[in-house]
Computed example of a mutant assay.
Amino acid sequence: MRTRQTIQSASTKIVLRRRTRRRFNPRIFIDRTLETAAIVSLLTTGLSGVGAMACWGMEIVEMNANPNIIISGWQYQKNICLGGMLVSFSAFLGSALVGAGFSIHQDKF
């Protein structure tokens, strides 16, 4: 929000600008925070899924290479990636639900 004031003299024109200070709007801050959390959690879910698939593939390769190994380290890594997927996807669902609740509250349905 900017306002302009113009002062004219005989031969010159001076434009004075006065800037108004922006006010902190907590609703916009909350909306942007929830949007960022949703995007980051979706990206984390995707990357954890790719990691889990890679660990699953390496586990299969390791089992085919040496059948004497019963439990390999790739199974633990796969479980960690699957747990990360579960947590980040639940964070996405939570942030989407809270964001939808705020938008419904703003529209006053």
Rank of each mutant, 00 (worst) to 15 (best):
C55K: 00
G46V: 02
G51V: 00
C81R: 00
M1K: 11
R2D: 13
N25W: 04
I71H: 07
L43K: 15
L47P: 00
G46S: 11
R23L: 11
Y76L: 12
T20Q: 13
L42W: 08
L86E: 10
P67I: 04
I14V: 15
Q77N: 11
L16S: 11
S72G: 13
L47M: 13
G94Y: 04
R18W: 07
G73P: 01
G46A: 07
G83H: 04
A100Q: 14
A10Y: 13
R22S: 06
V50D: 07
N68Q: 04
A100E: 14
L34Q: 01
M85A: 11
S88M: 05
F102I: 14
R32G: 13
D107T: 09
N64F: 11
T6W: 03
N79E: 08
R18A: 05
Q75V: 09
A100F: 14
F109W: 14
I104T: 12
I70L: 07
V98C: 10
K108N: 15
I69V: 10
R4L: 12
S90M: 10
R18C: 07
K108D: 12
V98T: 07
G57E: 05
G46N: 13
R18V: 14
N64H: 10
L42C: 05
T45C: 00
R19D: 15
R27L: 15
V61K: 11
A52V: 01
M53H: 03
I28G: 04
S41K: 00
N79A: 07
I71P: 00
R18E: 08
S88E: 06
F29T: 07
L47Y: 11
M53K: 04
D107Y: 14
Q75F: 06
L82C: 07
I7M: 13
G46E: 11
T12D: 09
D107N: 15
A52F: 00
R2L: 14
N68T: 13
P67K: 04
M58R: 04
T36Q: 13
T36N: 14
M85Q: 09
R17A: 12
S72R: 07
F24T: 10
N64D: 14
I69S: 02
F24P: 05
T12Q: 08
G49Q: 02
I28K: 12
R18I: 14
R18G: 05
W56F: 11
R2A: 15
T45L: 01
G84Y: 02
N68H: 06
L97W: 15
T3H: 08
P67L: 06
